[in-house]
Nucleic acid binder design. Structure first.
Length: 417
RNA sequence: GUGGGUAUAGUUCAGUUGGUUAGAACGCCAGUUUGUGGCACUGGAGGUCGUGGGUUCGAAUCCCACUAUCUACCCCA
């Protein structure tokens, strides 16, 4: 083998794929319960879509996109996130004329050209929900509820923290930015280089700078929540009250500003204490639909990093509980049993049992050994004697006890517990 | 983009001051008498020593570059 997978990608199989499927199955269940429909959009989109939506000054657009020119000289980008694609689809398919609000969920691979690290890949998978058309904070609540319901369903709700903040509307945010800049200005030369650039281009992003010097200066900086206009303040307070009433735990964190430009009002990040990593985030993006050429439409959404959720499940040992088992393995010791055992096998499979069968004509001993290795709960043995008597032997692999029964579906099923 | 570590069998790793045919454990396959798994014993398969250069009579071992990987930044999911 001299060809290996591209940097930042991975192969998923065996135990790990079980964990992925476990999460995906629960996503489908939860979304169905919330009456959220799935949407699938292209893996690649026009580069302009992300430049306009995610924002020119963001790291994603500046240095992380997989962008290339196709044979028709179009600039194409592998999606680094999916909100932009969903909103594009919303506009392009005239969904504004559909009953509002619309709720979509998605699951797919995203691509960002980044240096690899724990839980960070160049091809990674996100699950997300977008609610388009409601300007009420009940929509914010709904989206947070979905995220929380999923974590609860997969047994992680006590391992995550929802950090909440409001970054206001355009009006009050601009007043805040003025105040922030005035405070920073005298100390600007002490700040890091990226902050100096952000001071001009995207002052909000200075707030979550991790640089020590910047942190010290920002510790006493004005706080966005003090500058919210009456509307935004009431809206944000309403979100908090509602979450409390619904017993969805959260903490307030005014350093959360999100790395994408399209957010406003309530934003949040979901982090794992065990991993020390963000596993998801979201918020309101009332301006995005109009930025992309649609009529002004309010919207909220979030995305969860599936890779990190899977890592979290594995790290907590929850993955072992969801490993899949084989109900019944057919050990065939006689050629005359090959057809009949296969007929029974397919009937059992149609009934939903997980059934495996020898496909190698190996020795009986080897077949039992194999059944043991794939963790078969029972083995059905059919050899010369059994064929002659029209019977089979059902062996319980846990206690080793076995019983001869008639070679009939019902008889076999009765032995499987 | 920046800093540090690592790279030998499917996996986890040994490999002496550079010296014949590169090892172990686990895993895999098979056998230990004819139809019974886990335990034990025996045997077998499996390695361009990450890639390419260089030093040397001789390189898994020393030097350089590249690549991959892990980790901390940056940022995020």
């Amino acid at each position: 083998m001299n060809i290996s997978k591209p940097k930042g990608t991975k192969d998923i199989f065996f135990d790990e794929i079980n964990v992925w499927q476990y999460v995906e199955e629960n996503i489908i269940k939860v979304c169905k319960e919330f009456n959220i429909g799935e949407i699938r959009t292209p893996v690649f989109e026009s580069t302009a879509l992300f430049k306009r939506s995610v924002g020119d000054s963001t790291d994603i657009v500046n240095k992380e996109m997989y962008t290339f020119e196709d044979k028709g000289f179009r600039s194409i980008t592998l999606r680094p996130e999916l909100t932009a694609g969903v909103v594009r689809a919303y506009i392009e398919n005239g969904m504004s004329s559909l009953p509002s609000p619309l709720k979509f969920w998605y699951r797919g691979n995203m691509y960002r050209y980044e240096r690899m690290q724990k839980g960070r890949y160049r091809e990674f998978s996100q699950f997300g929900v977008e609610i388009i058309g409601s300007d009420s904070n009940l929509a914010d609540i709904e989206s947070i509820s979905v995220a929380y319901a999923l974590f609860k369903r997969i047994g992680l709700s006590s391992h995550i923290v929802i950090s909440l903040n409001s970054i206001g509307c355009t009006k009050c945010r601009n007043i805040f930015i003025q105040a922030l800049k005035e405070y920073i200005k005298p100390n600007l030369n002490k700040m890091c280089d990226t902050c100096k650039v952000r001071f001009e281009k995207n002052p909000m992003r200075m707030i979550d700078c991790k640089e020590k010097g910047c942190k010290d200066i920002l510790a006493k900086a004005p706080v966005i929540t003090d500058y919210l206009c009456e509307d935004c303040r009431v809206d944000f307070q309403g979100v908090q009250n509602m979450l409390k009433a619904l017993d969805i735990p959260f903490v307030l964190d005014n350093t959360i500003v999100r790395g994408l430009d399209y957010y406003n009002k309530t934003v949040y990040e979901i982090t794992s204490k065990d991993l020390g990593l963000s596993v998801g985030g979201g918020g309101r993006y009332d301006g995005l639909v109009s930025i992309l050429g649609g009529v002004q439409t309010p919207a909220v959404g979030f995305a969860i990093g599936m890779d990190r959720v899977v890592i979290l499940l594995q790290q907590l040992g929850l993955d072992k509980q969801i490993s899949k088992k084989v109900d019944l393995y057919f050990a065939i010791i006689d050629k005359d049993a090959e057809v009949i055992s296969r007929k029974i096998t397919s009937k059992l499979r149609e009934m939903g049992y997980v059934v495996d069968i020898d496909i190698q004509r190996r020795s009986f001993k080897a077949q039992l050994k194999y059944a043991d290795k794939i963790k078969a709960r029972y083995v059905c043995i059919i050899g010369k004697n059994e064929i002659k008597n029209n019977t089979c032997i059902i062996k319980n692999m846990e206690d080793g006890k076995q019983l001869e029964v008639k070679l009939e579906i019902d008889e076999i099923i009765n032995r499987l517990l």
